[in-house]
Amino acid sequence: MHGFTPLSSLLGGALIGLAISLVLLTHGRAAGISGLWAGVLRPSSDRTFRVWFFAGLIGAGLVMRAIFPQAFGAGPTAPLGLIAVAGLLVGYGTRLGGGCTSGHGVCGNSRLEARSIAATVTFMLTGALAVFALRALS
């Protein structure tokens, strides 16, 4: 196996779980990134909270890039056209399916919700298929 990083992945996951728990404790809602962003795009009662959350998410990226540039790896290898197609699929799919890796993958799965478990199995499978197709074509 190549580049196996069990400890940092487990620790990073725990921090994500902590952030999601903090949002639940203080704001009483599931911190799914796609759902939070969709609520920034339309007038919503808790838009201020959402905007501050994204300021933290993006701002921390800025700070980490400054002090630890290798954290982001090499970046995506796909051409920009393919990245744009992927982005469209992610945007449309997460709204149709009501969540992404955080909303279904962490929030819903932590509650053992059948919808989230089904969604997680499904997006893992098609994600694996997409990578298989990419590898086969390149």
């Binding site: 992927a86 992610v90 399916g97």
Partner: peptide, 17 residues
């Protein structure tokens, strides 16, 4: 929706967060 999202996730290597 989940299937569509997964395909995009695999193609780019990015999910929203």
């Amino acid at each position: 929706g989940a299937a569509t999202f997964g395909a995009g996730w695999g193609l780019a290597g990015y999910c929203p967060g």
